[in-house]
Design a protein around this nucleic acid. Structure first.
Lengths: 214, 214, 214, 214
DNA sequence: CATGAATGAGTGTTCATTCAT
DNA sequence: TATGAATGAACACTCATTCAT
C-alpha cells in the first residue's frame, strides 16, 4: 500500500513537474518571441533587457532565470533563426530532382527567408556574423548550412547542365547574389516589393544563364 | 630695416600659423581614422567617444573641439568614404568607351573600394544606410552615385551588346552582385583573398554572359 | 490545519509587503527631505542628482527608482510645499468671521509658513516661480491659492471695515508685504528672530491701519 | 637735449600707456555689459563664460585677463549694480527736505531701480545675497546702503510727521514692502506694468498713512 | 594683449546585472 | 518561480579653467 501511495505521489509529482516544465518552456518561448519583435521595433543596438521585460509583463530579473545574459538570449534568437533557415533550405534542396529546379528552389527559399525574417537575417548575416562563424559548444558550425547549396551546384555540374568548374566558387557566386539581394532589400527603403521582384527575376535568369554550359 | 624685420616676423608668424593648422588637421585625420576603426569594431551604438579618446590618447573633451558631436564625427567619416567612392566610380565610368569594358571597370572599382576600405564600406552600406538614403543638407542624395552604374547599363543596352530591358533592374542586379561579394568578403573570415578572387572572376563572367543578348 | 497555516502565511506575507512599502515610503521621504535641503543650498541648476545620492548614502541610480527624473523630483518637493501652504492658508481663512482677524490670521499663517519652511518657500516663490504660474497637468494653477487672500480682502471691504477699492490690488499689497518680510528673513542673516518679530508686528499694524477707512 | 628727448619719450609712453589703459577699460566694460545681457537672456544658472566670450567676439581665455574667475566677474557685475543703486538712493535722499517727500522719493527710486534693472536686482537681492552681506575686501558692507532709508525714517520721526518708534524697524517695514513689490514684479509674469502701478500706488498710500501719527 | 589647444570634473541618464527574499 | 531593490559602469556632452605661445 505504501508502494502504491508512493507511486501515486510520484505520478502526481511527475505530472506537476511536467506541467511546470511546460509552463517554463512556454514563458521561454514568449520571451524569445517578444525579443524578436523588440529587435524589429528598436533595432539591434537599442534593444534592452528592461524594455523586453516590460513588454512581456515580467520583471527584468525573471529574464535571467531563462537566459544567462543578454548575449545568451541573443544567441538563442539567432540560433532559432538558423534552425528555421536550415530547415527551409533543406526542404528546398529535396523539392526536385531536376538540377535547375533544385537550385531555383534553393534561391527562392533563401531570398524568401531573408525577406520574411528581416530581423533574424540581419542578426545572422549582417550584425552578428560572429555567431555564424564561431559555432556554439557541441554543435556543428552554422556555416555548414551552405553545404546544401554547394551540393546542389555539384549535382548540377555532374548532370552536365551547369558548365564545369569549382563547385565552391559557383556556390559562392550564388550566395553572394542572394545575399546582395536580401541585404539591399532589407537596408534600403527605396527597394520596395516590386523592385525586389523585378531584381530577383532578372538576377535568377541571368545567373542561371551565365552558369550554363556555353 | 624695420620693414624687413616686420616682414620676417610676418613670415615667422605665417609659418607658425601654418604649422598649427597642419597639426590641427593631422589630429583631425587621426581622429577620423581611429573613429572609423572603432566604428567598425563596435558598431555605431556601442561606439563611444570616450573609447575613441582613449584610443588616440586624448581626453574626451578634445574630440568636441574637432567635431560638434558624435553624429557629426560619424557623418564626416561616412562622407569621406562616399567622396572617395564616387570619385573611383566616376573614374571607372570614363575609363573606356567599350560598354563591356566600362561595366567591367565599374565592377572592379566597386569591389576594390569595398575590399580596400572595409571600414568605410560597412558604415556606408551595411550599418548606417540612413546616411546613404537621406542626403545631407544642401547636397545631392548619396544614392545618386549609382546613376553612373545605371547609365553604363543603358549605354550597353543602347549599343546592343546587352539584351534590352529595364536599365534600373539590370543595374540593381549588378549592384546586388557586387554588394553581396563585398559584404561576404568583409564579414566572413573564411573568405580569404584567393576565394574572393575566384568568386569575383566567375561572378563577372557569369553575370556578363547572363546579361548578353541570347 | 492546512487552512490555518495558509492563513498564517498570508498574514506574514501581508506583513512583509506592508513593511516593504513602508520602507520604500520612508526612503522616498528621505530623498525628498534631502533634496529640499540640497536645492536650497545649491539652487536648482547646481543641484545634482549625484550629490543628492551621496548625501543620503545611496547610489545615483537608486534615485531613479523613486523619481522619473530631476524635474519630477523637484516638482514633487515643490508640490508638497504647496499642499501644506494651501492647507494652512485655508485653515487661517476659516478661523474667524471677523474680517480683520481673518486677514490677520492669513498674514500670520503666510509668514509662519515661510519662516518654518524656508526651503519650500524659496523653491515655491523665489527660485522656481515657474511651478507657481504654470499649473501641473490636470490641476488648478497653484496661483489660485491666493484667492483666499483676495476673498478675505473683499469680505473686509464688503463689511465696511476696509476702505473700498480694488480687491485684487489690496490683496497684492498684502502679498507683497508678506513676501517681502519672508524673503528678507530668509535671505539676510542679520534679520534674526527678534528683528523679524518687531518687523512683522509693525508691518501688520501699519498696513491694516493704512487700509482702514479714513 | 637728452632730457627733452626723454621727456618726449615719456610723454609718448604715457600717452600710449594711457591709450592702452583706456582700451583695456573699454573691453572690460564691454564684457560687463555683455555679461549683464547674457544674465538677462539665460538666467543666472545657465550663464556661461564660453557663451559670454562668443557673444563679444573674443576667446574665452581673454575673459580671464580681465577677471580672475567667473565669481569675480559676477561680483563685479553685482558691485556695479550696487554702486548705481546707492547713487540713486542717495540722490533721492537729498531731493527734498520734506520728510514725506523724501521717503516717497526713496521708495520711488528703489522700486524704479528694481524694475529697470531686473537682472542686477535679482543678483543683488535674490540670487546672490551673499554678495550683499559679506562685503568685499576693503570696502564697506553693501548693506549700509540702507542707512539712507533709516536716516530718512529717523528724520521723519524727529519732524513729528511719523509716529515715534524704532527707526530700524520702520525702515525694515518699508524695505520689506518695496522688496516684496519688486520681487513679485520680477518673478511673476502676471504682474504686468499696470498691475504693478496700481500695487505701488496703493502700497505707498497705505504704508505712509499707516505710519503716520494717529 | 590675445588665443588655440587641451583637460578634469562634473552633469543627467540608461544599462545589464546581482542579491536577498 | 519570481521579484523589488539596488548598484557600478558607462554614455554624450558642457563647464570653468590653465598653459604655452
Amino acid at each position: 500500500m505504501e508502494k502504491a501511495t508512493e507511486t501515486r505521489k510520484e505520478r502526481i509529482q511527475k505530472g506537476i513537474r511536467h506541467r511546470r516544465e511546460q509552463e517554463k518552456e512556454e514563458l521561454r518561448q514568449t520571451i524569445l518571441k517578444a525579443a524578436g519583435e523588440l529587435f524589429l521595433d528598436l533595432g539591434y543596438e537599442r534593444f534592452s533587457m528592461r524594455q523586453l521585460a516590460e513588454r512581456i509583463g515580467y520583471s527584468a530579473t525573471t529574464l535571467y532565470l531563462y537566459f544567462r545574459d543578454k548575449d545568451d538570449l541573443l544567441f538563442t534568437v539567432v540560433g532559432e533563426g538558423f534552425t528555421r533557415f536550415e530547415q527551409q533550405l533543406a526542404t528546398a534542396a529535396t523539392s526536385s530532382n531536376d538540377p535547375w529546379e533544385r537550385l531555383n528552389a534553393l534561391g527562392q527559399a533563401y531570398v524568401s527567408f531573408g525577406l520574411n525574417n528581416p530581423v533574424h537575417y540581419q542578426l545572422m548575416f549582417m550584425q552578428r556574423v560572429d555567431f555564424l562563424t564561431q559555432s556554439c559548444a557541441g554543435e556543428q558550425p552554422r556555416l555548414e548550412a551552405f553545404n546544401v547549396l554547394q551540393d546542389a551546384v555539384q549535382y548540377a555540374m555532374d548532370a552536365g547542365v551547369m558548365k564545369p568548374g569549382n563547385a565552391e566558387t559557383c556556390s559562392d557566386v550564388l550566395w553572394a547574389m542572394m545575399h546582395g539581394i536580401v541585404a539591399l532589400a532589407i537596408s534600403i527603403p527605396s527597394f520596395d516589393r516590386e523592385r525586389i521582384q523585378r531584381l530577383t527575376t532578372v538576377a535568377r535568369d541571368s545567373i542561371l544563364k551565365g552558369l550554363s554550359p556555353s
